[in-house]
Nucleic acid binder design. Structure first.
Lengths: 231, 231
DNA sequence: CAAAATTGTAACTAAATAGTTAAATTTTTC
DNA sequence: GAAAAATTTAACTATTTAGTTACAATTTTG
């Protein structure tokens, strides 16, 4: 009963697999992409444990063995899905930040482009929150690295701003959590907020929230420059 | 196959059950509490779908039928666990806030006591994040109400502060997400942060983070009072 | 174009899982 | 202290679930 299971056949190596499919982008046909997209949705909705391979079949319209052919097993699918998901959000954010000039504009670009990307791909904040809630122990290393790149980018911006004498001293991690935390909560809580019809009507749009958040973060970080405050 | 299952026996009504166990607090003996505590832990770790009743048995040392006797079914157990969990955090926060004098102290009390309670009961931020990530659709109404009480309390504080002329105009929801988001991320990410040994060493303690966060939120909200900034 | 590699399918298996049952034990109540 | 009610137990069942297998169709490559 508690004996180790004997696997008669090794599942195809995950790394080998994802590398192969990465190398020939043409070759990862509609099927593999459909699987990945549907799986990502489901993982965001109900997590790893809450998602079943059978539902993935019916929702994606792909047969089960195809899934196992492409991704080895459920854990492998999760790994690929999360890594691509995080990359698809972090990469554009870093690109946008890199194009901005000056630490203040970079901070602004950081907040705004993360907000936009995460809102465009709301599965990402959902998965991120769920993963952190679990202690991040099932988070693939590659996905974790993406988040670390994001934190590092913010750290550089804040340091540069301090050196330029326009930002106060601040803790990068707290600031990072402040920005990501508010935006992830805002984006993922959308269905919940929409479900409470017009009881209190205290909802801003995403753009308004970005503005609010940006101005709050700037108020917290900027050194006494006179700013117009059109809240 | 797709026919509705015929249940031979109705499980004991959930409401009836929880009401009964609530009424006689003495009566909810060690067993029920052990079940609840272990279940809450597990739900925080791996969510509803990721938690199994068999593991709950082995981890709590309680037999399966006892669980079903006390809580009806898995969903019922989840409902009771979440409601009690959220109440156990929100109640003390509201009490502490009510004791503070003046909107600035109340804001401070809000942040600090939520941070302390959530850190004392880290299962709560974990479950909260996971639930919001799922769209909050499985969140028991009673648990949702607790969160709404919290938001309402902050709203009152912010409004009072505006009327007193010490707070800028601000959006309560964004501010709420900012405070809860940062703190929930900080608390739940602890295992992750501890796992990265001393690579970058950019971690503050909870108390330092509370200080940082409070001063950032205050900087964002307070109207140009000269403050000492010992960051 | 033919052999080989890749991509797809349906039916199957073994294990895990939620939930049940009937009877034993403990606690409450009269 | 005995009847009744509440609580706990071990063994069982039906379903769901991850993962497999053998084979068919398609695509790639020499």
């Amino acid at each position: 009963m508690t004996q180790a299971k004997i696997k008669t056949k090794e599942p195809p190596s995950l790394v080998e697999h994802s590398t192969l499919s990465r190398l020939r982008a043409k070759k990862r046909g509609k099927t593999a992409n459909k699987i990945l997209a549907t799986a990502t949705e489901m993982f965001a909705e109900t997590g790893f444990g809450g998602s079943t391979m059978d539902e993935l079949c019916s929702r994606s319209g792909v047969n089960k063995a195809s899934i196992y052919y492409h991704f080895g097993d459920k854990a492998g699918l999760y790994e690929v899905a999360l890594t691509e998901l995080f990359k698809s959000v972090v990469e554009p954010v870093l690109k946008t930040v890199a194009q901005a000039q000056g630490s203040r504009n970079q901070l602004h670009a950081f907040i705004e482009s993360f907000a936009q990307q995460a809102s465009l791909t709301p599965t990402m904040p959902a998965v991120l929150m769920r993963e952190i809630a679990s202690g991040g122990m099932n988070m693939p290393i590659a996905a974790r690295e993406q988040m670390q790149r994001l934190l590092f980018a913010l750290k550089v911006i804040l340091q540069q701003g301090e050196e330029d004498g326009i930002f106060k001293e601040s803790d990068p991690l707290t600031t990072h959590f402040m920005i990501l935390g508010s935006l992830c909560l805002f984006i993922t809580s959308e269905p919940m907020r929409l479900a409470i019809p017009a009881e209190k009507k205290l909802d801003l749009s995403l753009d308004e929230t970005i503005q609010q958040l940006t101005s709050m973060v700037e108020a917290a970080l900027l050194i006494a420059n006179k700013e117009d405050e059109n809240v």
